[in-house]
Simulated assay, not measured.
Amino acid sequence: MSDQYQPPKVWSQDAESGGKWASINRPVSGATYEKTLPVGEHALQLYSMATPNGQKVTIMLEELLAQGKGADYDAHYIDIGEGEQFSSGFVDINPNSKIPALLDRENNKQVKVFESASILVYLAEKFNALLPNNGIERTTVMNWLFWLQGAAPYLGGGFGHFYAYAPEKFEYPINRFTMEIKRQLDVLDKQLENKAFIVGDTLSIADIAIWPWYGNLVLGNLYDAEQFLQVKDYTHVRRWAKELLSLPSFQRGQIVNRSWGEEWQQLKNRHSAQDIDKVLALKHE
Score class of each variant (00 low, 15 high):
M60Q: 00
Q4S: 14
D201R: 06
E285A: 04
N216E: 09
Q13P: 11
Y77R: 04
I255C: 05
K268L: 12
E16P: 01
P38H: 04
D3Q: 14
V28K: 11
G40Q: 08
S272Q: 05
Q251D: 13
A22N: 15
R176G: 03
E115S: 10
N107S: 11
W144I: 06
Q85P: 00
E226M: 13
Q230D: 15
E168C: 04
N53M: 02
G89Y: 10
Y73E: 01
S2L: 13
V10Q: 14
D104C: 13
Y223V: 11
L44I: 13
N143G: 09
K242N: 10
D14S: 06
A71T: 02
V231T: 15
A209N: 00
P153V: 15
A124K: 07
G156L: 03
L244P: 03
E168Y: 03
T235Y: 11
L229W: 08
K278W: 00
A225F: 09
Y5L: 02
L155A: 06
I208K: 01
K35F: 02
K56A: 00
Y163Q: 02
Y122G: 08
V121H: 12
F90N: 08
W264S: 02
N134Q: 15
M1S: 13
Y33F: 13
G70K: 14
Y234G: 10
R105N: 06
E84Q: 00
F146A: 01
G83N: 02
Y163R: 04
G150I: 10
K195E: 15
G18E: 01
E285G: 10
K182S: 05
S272D: 05
L203R: 07
A124R: 04
G156P: 07
N25F: 14
R176F: 09
R138G: 10
W21V: 10
E84T: 02
G54Q: 05
D233L: 11
L46K: 09
R239P: 02
S29W: 09
L217K: 07
I119Q: 02
D224S: 13
L46P: 06
K109C: 00
T32P: 08
G220E: 10
Q67F: 04
P173S: 00
V10F: 11
V199W: 00
N175H: 08
L247E: 02
A152W: 07
L229V: 14
T235R: 10
L65M: 08
Q149D: 05
S29Y: 13
V231A: 14
D224V: 08
S17I: 06
F127I: 14
G150Q: 09
K242S: 12
I99S: 04
A101P: 11
V10E: 13
L267H: 05
P7I: 03
P153C: 14
L188M: 08
Q254C: 03
L131S: 15
K190D: 12
T235K: 15
Y214F: 15
I59H: 01
L217E: 04
L245M: 04
